[in-house]
Write a protein that binds this DNA or RNA. Structure first.
Length: 789
DNA sequence: CAGTGAGCGAGCTTCCGCTTGACTT
């Protein structure tokens, strides 16, 4: 039996370390926290110094009993969880739960998984730092108190099953407030002047731009008019060297942002793929807020850069974290072996690895050098000067491997920047020929909606949440129905372009699409309602700086400068009073809005959130005649819907005619407009307005869909026509009544028998799922019966 | 993918942070 048991948090880490330590050490993992507060309301005894009731959750029982057994057999137990607040608490919980003895337990820490770092850590053991543990307890207790007292207030005052918390509620608030900023935003138009010149002798062309814009079309027109007969001359010429530095290697948050921008991954996907790379030993730990590289990594990167690109591409750099809340228990995310420029694996794994490799390598490379040329151009008839810029790269440096992207949003505007990669040779005083001149109407842009990744970035800036919780938080606020990640169509907008033709200023009107969004975070009506309620009654908690404020106090506790129960007392008193006061005195939250009167009936029209979502209502429940209802559609919100838009909702579903003796109706559902015919649904082709569909068009759509369905069928089984093999989006599958069955890998489609289908159908988990509701219903009955007794 | 939208009211919901793995498509 091994003399030493060393416990870390992650099994992949355990495997690596075991290799460094030899057979005297058995290295095991705790799989994160092994204990948590009980899930019931008595988890914290507020009146008794916030005493906590912990339990080992069922999925951790096996780990705990194994560790308990091994720790009894070991001479020394080494607690090697991470060097931060949560890690220290994990060590303490292990100590308590495993029943360890002080004289045979040692606490060690290291923040890089290298042999020297670990050997050094083992030479410097210490005891458990109880100040740090207390800081974690304060954090844990505060989060539980906030979450479990705030959420029930929402159940009472808004809707059951809702949730609120220190992190998620601020995330929702950011999205709600951004949406309102966008709604309030008024685009301002201005005219941007771009000129195209040729040099006297050569045919070489380049662009120049007027730095200022004209607010009025008349001013732009006058400028163009003045330029028709003007002479143009270079008034000044300046050459200036510039440099660009590489970005720091990835943290969790920056990896999520870049993978979102460059690979189109959701934050959850990024973490899944990174986890696989980590477990395969390809990269270092993926949940980190540190930009630090270990000395061995810095050396390995240098070796690789010098070998692959040469000495002049290398520059050793150390990065410092910019985020206030960083705890830096790990290294930055980097490849374990820099010599591996790429790896085997699936497509996602290869691309994410490549991104990580490039970013980490680039972070140790020399800066890129540019020469920026700025030419000012005098216009003989005007006081303003046009400016032409050109930038050429003198040395590519880190750009040889990595270009960082930006969050710069483009709302479909035409890219008519006046920049040039290269300017032709120019001299001061040189006269130029005007080739073309345009004034284009441009509009100021509203703030950009958040993507999952830009929301993570914002949360990190505010110090809210941790690397391990960014992805789950984004999921939570979507699962609760507070926000949705969606595409939205843009609207057409017209803009004017002035240019010179045949010595005259000519005006054109062009059309662009503006406001189209892809995979952006939108608040829902319920998200807005809950947010407004929390802001009104619990402003302190949903304040953007609440976390930063309590984090400062947790730090003081960790330093031993503050008592953790005192901190919680100061917080809990006023907070709990607010809860009581709100439960007693606050009205039920509502976002009902009156839109006006229906001209046809004279009845009031209003919008609100109903049991099945946001709706418009004509008439009131007190009327003799029943009120009419219609659900709002994607993109429509209670706060912004207009009277006309609301009334339009009652125009559908609409009858469009008959086909095969059955009525056809057109309506709009969750996936867009469709035709309903004899209990079947047929989507309308994109771009077709459901209001103008004719009987003939509808019939054609039905016939087309039937034809496509027939073409999809590969084979129908003789034994049962309800069983057939079809071509689906991801290849062939079996349709068996209402069940869709996967064809096992390696099966030849031609050889599938009806017996196979029956066998697979019975093994399909969905088949048992269909029975599940019945079971649930009986379970419910028994609890009800019990309750009655 | 529709339409549904009352009122009664038992029993349930919920936090954040540390880990994977067992599920689904």
């Amino acid at each position: 039996m091994a003399k030493n048991l060393l416990i870390v948090e992650s099994p992949a880490k355990a495997k690596t370390i075991e290799g460094y330590l030899g057979k005297d050490f058995l290295v095991k993992s705790s799989y994160g926290h092994i204990r948590d507060l009980v899930k019931t309301d008595d988890a914290i005894d507020v009146d008794n110094g916030f005493k906590q009731k912990y339990e080992v959750p069922s999925d951790k029982k096996a780990v705990v009993s194994e560790l308990k057994k091994l720790s009894k057999e070991a001479e020394t137990v080494w607690l090697a969880s991470d060097e931060d607040r949560e890690g220290e608490a994990i060590s303490w919980h292990l100590y308590e739960t495993l029943g360890l003895k002080e004289d045979k337990t040692k606490r060690i820490v290291f923040h890089e998984i290298t042999k020297p770092a670990i050997l050094k850590a083992i030479e410097q053991p210490r005891g458990i730092d109880f100040n740090l543990v207390n800081a974690q307890q304060a954090r844990r207790v505060l989060d539980r108190l906030v979450g479990f007292e705030l959420s029930p207030v929402l159940w009472r005052k808004v809707k059951p099953s809702l949730s609120a918390g220190r992190v998620q509620s601020v995330a929702v608030r950011l999205i709600v407030e951004r949406e309102r900023e966008i709604n309030r935003f008024q685009a301002e138009a201005s005219f941007k002047i771009v000129a195209q010149f040729t040099t006297g002798k050569g045919k070489e062309q380049f662009k120049a731009e007027l730095p200022q814009r004209f607010e009025k079309k008349e001013e732009a027109e006058k400028f163009l008019q003045d330029c028709i007969a003007a002479a143009f001359e270079i008034s000044s010429l300046e050459k200036r060297p510039t440099k660009r530095n590489p970005a720091a290697p990835f943290t969790t948050s920056t990896l999520q942002q870049e993978a979102s921008r460059k690979l189109g991954f959701s934050v959850a996907r990024t973490m899944q793929v990174a986890q696989r790379l980590y477990e395969a030993g390809r990269i270092t730990y993926m949940r980190t807020d540190s930009v630090n590289l270990s000395d061995t990594a810095i050396q390995a990167a240098e070796d690789e850069i010098v070998k692959a690109y040469g000495d002049k591409y290398h520059k050793m750099r150390r990065y410092k974290t910019k985020s206030a809340g960083a705890q830096e228990a790990h290294e930055a995310i980097r490849p374990t072996y820099f010599s591996q420029h790429s790896i085997d694996g699936d497509n996602a794994e290869r691309r994410l690895y490549e991104l990580i490799w490039k970013r980490a390598i680039a972070s140790q490379m020399s800066e890129a050098e540019f020469e920026k040329t700025t030419a000012k151009i005098h216009v003989s008839t005007r006081s303003e000067e046009l400016v032409a810029t050109g930038e050429i790269m003198r040395f590519d440096g880190f750009l040889k491997v990595y270009i960082e992207s930006t969050d710069d949003e483009n709302d479909g505007a035409i890219d008519d920047e006046g920049g040039n990669a290269l300017l032709p040779p120019l001299e001061k005083g040189q006269s130029l020929n005007l080739k073309a001149l345009t004034a284009t109407e441009r509009f100021s842009r509203p703030p950009a909606r958040y993507t999952e990744a830009s929301l993570v970035k914002k949360l990190e800036e505010l110090g809210i949440g941790r690397p391990s919780t960014y992805a789950p938080t984004i999921s939570t606020i979507q699962n609760r129905g507070y926000v949705v990640k969606e595409d939205r169509d843009g609207k057409e907008r017209q803009y004017k372009v002035l240019h010179i033709a045949d010595g005259k200023v000519v005006e054109d009107t062009k059309t662009e699409i503006t406001g189209a969004e892809r995979s952006k975070m939108f608040p829902t009506d319920i998200g807005m309602l809950v947010n407004d309620f929390l802001v009104e009654h619990f402003n302190d908690i949903v304040d953007y700086h609440f976390t930063a404020k309590v984090e400062k106090e947790f730090d003081e506790i960790a330093q031993g400068d503050k008592e953790w129960t005192a901190m919680l007392n100061d917080f809990y008193g006023p907070f709990h009073d607010g809860i009581e006061d709100t439960l007693e005195n606050a009205d039920r939250a509502t976002n009902e809005r009156s839109l006006g009167t229906d001209p046809a009936t004279g009845k009031p029209v209003s919008v609100r959130v109903g049991r099945f979502g946001p709706l418009v209502q004509i008439g009131s429940a007190d009327d003799e005649e029943k009120p009419r209802f219609a659900s709002l559609r994607k993109g429509q919100m209670i706060e912004t819907i207009t009277f006309d838009e609301a009334m339009d909702l009652f125009k559908l579903p609409k009858k469009v005619g008959e086909f095969e003796d059955k009525e056809m109706t057109v309506a709009i559902g969750r996936f867009g407009p469709y035709i309903r015919h004899a209990s079947a649904f047929y989507s309308l082709p994109k771009g077709m307005d459901p209001m103008d569909v004719t009987e003939e068009e509808a019939i054609q759509i039905i016939k087309d869909k039937r034809q496509r369905d027939i073409e999809k069928v590969i084979r129908v089984f003789d034994e049962n026509p309800d069983a057939q093999i079809e071509n689906g989006r991801w290849g062939p599958f079996i349709r068996f009544g209402k069940q869709n069955l996967k064809i096992p890998k390696g099966t030849e489609v031609e050889k599938i028998t009806y017996e196979d289908v029956l066998k697979w159908a019975a093994a399909d988990p969905k088949a048992s799922k269909a029975k599940a509701p019945a079971k649930k219903a009986t379970a419910k009955k028994t609890t009800k019966a019990k309750a009655k007794k």
